[in-house]
Every structure is written in structure tokens, then in C-alpha cells.
Design a protein around this nucleic acid. Structure first.
Length: 423
RNA sequence: GGAGAGGUGGCCGAGCGGCCUAAGGCGCUUGCCUGCUAAGCAAGUGUGGGAGUUUUUCCCACCGAGGGUUCGAAUCCCUCCCUCUCCGCCA
């Protein structure tokens, strides 16, 4: 959530933020108009309340001295009615302003390249070389079923399209990847491992920014109105909702493995084959609560932690900085990590690392007590470390052999009982 | 699902119609003292909002959430949410 005070004092900056994001600016104008009316009405009710409080004190005095106070009481009553009338209008405005503020995207950081869409993202660095195959490489959606280890048909029977069943060594490899990633981040990168709930309340998921604007992307459960998390970021950030942290404890670094559930409502034509885009996938997620002055260093560090997974798996990747037009709603700055996929003959997103600055902390009322005793919002960062399903795809396709088998990357063999090849 | 208890500042906890401008303690900050640390002593320390000033300030709201009663609510009434204990069911 943006800071209404900052918005009021510097509307031009926020208007530019919307323009850079290729978004209409009408919600900004509406907020400014309502905010002005709101402040006028607040001033008015404050004055009326002050008057009423004064009358009340006098009534108390008169009653003590057994004097008639009916005139004052009558006046006080009338003031009460006026207050109520204004309050009705005020709560209407509050509701609307709040909704608009919750719908306002995070302004991009000044370092973010301005651009209209994903074609203007900037490649920052590249690691490894795509493998040159001496044969025609198979796509994972051919290779998996051939091995009898990916089953899209039965998954569709169970749940519909965009679901997948893993079998045998491929299921085991998915589990190995999860453990490998968790071990790396907890043992070498200093993260605290969390196993959080996958069902969260409306309030929790509003804090991270998925609500109120993107409800159609979420699975909602009734009658409890709980949401299946689209990413563990929701649970990890939400953990500290309405809390006051200690400055000395920052940064807090969490890692969690969870499944992620996404309706993929707007993506009917995209990635229709295979398990690149499915409604349920596993992910290991990294989240930081960082000191505001150190959050951009933190973003570099977090991104490097995600990259380290790919380096150890020896999977070629590149890091892309998203331009303003492609930036997610809650992010001030984002690096996407893209892994090489032979089936796409291109790099494909496998991690997205973002600094949301105080955007989520504000929405979630997460603060910390600074050394001078003041309260401030920490910055929150999140990144996949990594999307497990897509990592599995990358291994299948990049490590495949001519006879349709899959070599197991060295670092995963201890997690596979020493197995070297699948198939 | 049933019965009971409870939700008050960063934390613990008192208050149960106007003297609450929320006691007291812990913690935290600063200073003093001090081989270091700890202890001790002193002072300070709630949040949010509005108006003004940009140094000093004034006003309003907030005691789980929302309604209600009242001239006036942390305090009384209603609804809801959450936590804990016990019972039932259950992996």
C-alpha cells in the first residue's frame, strides 16, 4: 500500500509511477478528491467532539452541585446527531479510499528501466552455455510420459487440465530437489526453515497484495473463506502481520517449501503443453524482512542465493531485470531468473526476486522498533529459490540422453540414494 | 460441535459509568556510577489521525472487531472474531 501522506504531498511522483507502469491515473485523482473531503469532515467532527466533551464536563459539574443541566444536555444531544450524520459519510469515504489505496500498485524504484512490456526487460548477466545436443532433444512432455513417470491424462481425469502426476524416480527427484534447496539455504545461506499453513485468511493475502485486485487468480474455499496460497510468500510475510519487530533482529530470513495453487485465469493460450504452467506446483520460497536502508543490498544477496541453486545444478540461466511495464503489482524492483529450456529453445522464468520495500509491511501493519524508539516499516523481499517443478523440467530436458534417459546432477545423487541415471 | 475462562500499551498486568490525561512492573532509550558484563540510581518512553508550526503546540480517536444504551463507555447491553481449558469427534 502506498502512503497516503506521501501521495498527498507529492501526487506528481505517484502519477508518474502509474504512467511508467502503463496504467491509467484516474484512481489517483479519485483518491486525491476523496482525501480532501475526508480531511474536511474529520476536522469538522473533531471540533464538534471537542465541543461535546466540554459540555459533558460541565454537565458533570452541574450534576454534582445539583443544578439543572437540561439545556446543556439538549445541546449535547444535537451535536451528537450532527456527528453521526457526518460519520456516515466519512465511513463511506474511508471504505472507498481504502479500497483505492489497496488497488494502487507499488511505485517502481528509480533504478528500474522504463519500458512498456516484457520485450523491454534488460538482461543483466548470463551463466553457463546452453548444451549442444548431438541428437534431437525431447521436450519433457514427451520424455516424461515415455518413461512412464509423467501422467497428464490421469491428472486431467482427477482434476482437469493443467495438473500433473509424477511417478517413480521423477517423483523422487522432485522430493530430492526440495531437500537440496532447503539444505542449501538453511545451512549455507542462513535462512530459518518454516513449514507454514497453505490456507490463509483474506486479511493475510491482502497484505501481500494478491487481494483485492487479483481474486480471480486464487482458489477460495467455502464456507470458511480461506485462500490456497499462490506462493509461500503469502504465509511467510503474513506470519508477522500486526507485529512489532526489533531492529536488532533484522534481517529476518525465512525459507519455506510449499505447494502453490494458481487458477491461471488469464493465461489460456500460454504454455499449454507440459507442466511449465500448472495449477499446483511446488516451490521453495525465500523471504526477507530487511532494514529499509539495506533492502537493495538484500535484493542482490537474495537473488544470488536463488542463482546458486542453478549453478550447483549446472543449469544455464540468465538474470533479467524487469522494466516498469512488466513489474508485478507489489514489487518496486524485480529480477527474474530464467533457465534454459531446450523445448522452448529459449530461457524460461524459474525464479522472480523482488523488493517490495514497505509496500507489504504497510498493508500488513508490520513494523519494527528502531533504536530511537520510533516505529518504522521494514522492507520485505521475496524470491523463488526455486520453482521446483520447473527445475525438474530443466533437469529432464538439459540432462537427457540420446536413448531417452535422464542423468542425475551430481549434487542430487546423495538425495537419490546414489542413483546416477533415471530410465 | 458442546461447556467454561479470557482478549487492556513492545510484553506482563490493574481498572468494571465522569477523579483514565489507563496504576504498577518488565523491557527499551539516555545520563550517572563502574576493570568488562551485570546490578544500582535518575530521567524519558503508547498508536493512529486532523489543524497549525516546521522551534514551542492544540484537538480528536483508539483498551479484540462492529453495532447499541447514555449528556458522557476500557467499564453496561447485543452480534461477531480470536485464544486458552475441559468434553465429544478425529489424522
Amino acid at each position: 500500500m502506498v502512503d497516503i501522506k506521501a501521495l498527498r504531498e507529492n501526487p506528481e511522483e505517484f502519477r508518474n509511477a502509474l504512467i511508467k507502469r502503463q496504467m491509467p491515473t484516474d484512481l489517483l485523482e479519485e483518491i486525491l478528491n476523496l482525501d480532501e473531503e475526508r480531511r474536511r469532515l474529520i476536522t469538522e467532527t473533531n471540533q464538534l467532539r471537542a465541543k461535546r466533551n466540554e459540555l459533558s464536563r460541565e454537565v458533570a459539574k452541574l450534576k454534582k452541585s445539583d443544578t439543572d443541566a437540561s439545556t446543556l444536555i439538549e445541546e449535547s444531544k444535537q451535536i451528537g446527531e450532527r456527528i453521526k450524520a457526518i460519520e456516515n459519510r466519512l465511513s463511506e469515504i474511508d471504505g472507498r479510499v481504502n479500497y483505492l489505496l489497496l488497488s494502487f500498485p507499488n511505485p517502481p524504484h528509480e533504478s528500474v528501466p522504463v519500458g512498456k512490456d516484457e520485450t523491454e526487460n534488460v538482461v543483466i548477466r548470463q551463466w553457463g552455455e546452453p548444451r549442444r545436443f548431438s541428437f534431437e532433444p525431447r521436450a519433457h512432455w514427451d520424455l516424461g510420459p515415455q518413461l512412464g513417470m509423467l501422467d497428464f491424462d490421469r491428472a486431467a481425469k482427477l482434476s482437469g487440465s493443467r495438473f500433473v502426476i509424477l511417478r517413480k524416480e521423477l517423483a523422487q527427484l522432485e522430493r530430492a530437489l526440495i531437500n537440496f534447496m532447503l539444505d542449501l539455504h538453511t545451512r549455507e545461506h542462513g535462512y530459518v526453515e518454516i513449514m507454514p499453513p497453505h490456507l490463509v485468511s483474506r486479511e493475510s493475502i491482502t497484505a501481500t497484495g494478491q487481494l483485492p485486485k487479483f481474486e480471480e487468480e486464487l482458489y477460495n474455499t467455502q464456507p470458511d473463506d480461506l485462500f490456497l496460497i499462490p506462493t509461500a510468500e503469502v504465509s511467510l510475510v503474513g506470519m508477522h502481520r500486526n507485529e512489532i519487530l526489533f531492529e536488532a533482529d533484522l534481517p529476518l530470513k525465512y525459507v519455506a517449501y510449499t505447494p502453490c495453487y494458481r487458477r491461471e485465469a488469464g493465461s489460456y493460450g500460454k504454455d499449454v503443453r507440459g507442466m511449465v504452467r500448472v495449477h499446483q506446483f511446488n516451490k521453495v520460497e525465500l523471504v526477507w524482512f530487511a532494514h529499509p536502508e539495506k533492502s537493495y543490498e538484500a535484493l542482490e544477496e537474495l537473488t544470488s542465493h536463488a542463482e546458486e541453486v542453478l549453478k550447483r545444478l549446472k543449469l544455464p540461466y540468465r538474470v533479467v531485470e524487469l522494466c516498469t511495464g512488466d513489474l508485478g503489482f507489489a514489487a518496486a524492483k524485480t529480477y527474474d531468473i530464467e533457465v534454459w529450456l531446450p523445448s522452448y529453445n529459449d530461457y524460461k522464468e524459474i525464479s522472480s526476486c523482488s523488493n517490495t520495500e514497505d509496500f507489504q509491511a504497510r498493508r500488513g501493519n508490520i513494523r519494527y522498533r528502531a533504536r530511537d524508539n520510533s516505529l518504522r516499516h521494514p522492507h520485505t523481499l521475496n524470491g523463488s529459490g526455486l520453482a521446483v517443478g520447473r527445475t525438474l523440467i530443466a533437469i529432464m530436458e538439459n540432462y537427457q540422453t540420446e536413448d531417452g534417459k535422464i542423468e542425475i546432477p551430481d549434487v542430487l545423487r546423495p538425495y537419490m540414494n546414489g542413483l546416477e541415471v533415471i530410465g
